[in-house]
């Protein structure tokens, strides 16, 4: 009888201790709530937001200051891509300097909507022409805008890049 009463009150006290234990944690965090905030005010911190080097946001074709890229149109990335998000349209055109016919890209089409950012195209590229950009704000109002042409107008192959 007394044992049961003792157990009853012990149970209550233990429960209260457990509850207070939990409240101590949350109480601790609200006491220094300002210091411990873990969320970011995202669109406001755009200017200071620094992505990591290896962050994979989208595929970009690198151009240097003379509007030259390193893509020879070998289509290795197109083959490597699991989703068919890269399409390279190339043609043999006459090189104005040597007069020889040379394979050149016309358009480097990139379907962002199909890309899974797996990085396989970057690994496949023999001339390091493409890399992963850091831009992650891809939302657009029209789906067709997600199909991008990566080579800039008038750009041509950088000198010295082997075919």
């Amino acid at each position: 009888m007394f044992r049961a009463i003792y157990e009853y009150f012990k149970e209550i006290l233990l429960a209260i201790r457990g509850l207070i234990n939990g409240m101590r944690i949350t109480g601790k965090y609200i006491a220094h709530a300002r210091k411990e905030i873990i969320t970011q005010e995202y669109p406001d911190n755009r200017d200071t937001l620094q992505m990591f080097d290896r962050f994979r946001g989208e595929v970009v074709l690198l151009h240097n200051e003379n509007n030259e890229h390193r893509c020879t149109g070998c289509s290795a990335c197109e083959v490597a891509c699991p989703n068919g998000s890269i399409e390279i349209i190339w043609a043999r055109r006459e090189d104005p300097e040597t007069g020889k016919k040379k394979k050149q890209i016309e358009t480097f089409v990139y379907h962002l909507s199909m890309c899974t950012m797996c990085n396989l195209c970057i690994l496949a590229c023999p001339t390091d022409a493409i890399k992963m950009g850091h831009d992650f704000e891809h939302a657009v109002f029209d789906r067709s805008q997600l199909t991008k042409v990566l080579n800039r107008p008038g750009s041509k192959l950088e000198k010295g890049v082997e075919e």
Partner: peptide
Amino acid sequence: RVCAFFQLRL
């Protein structure tokens, strides 16, 4: 607000 501060949010 209070809930946010408990949860380390703003």
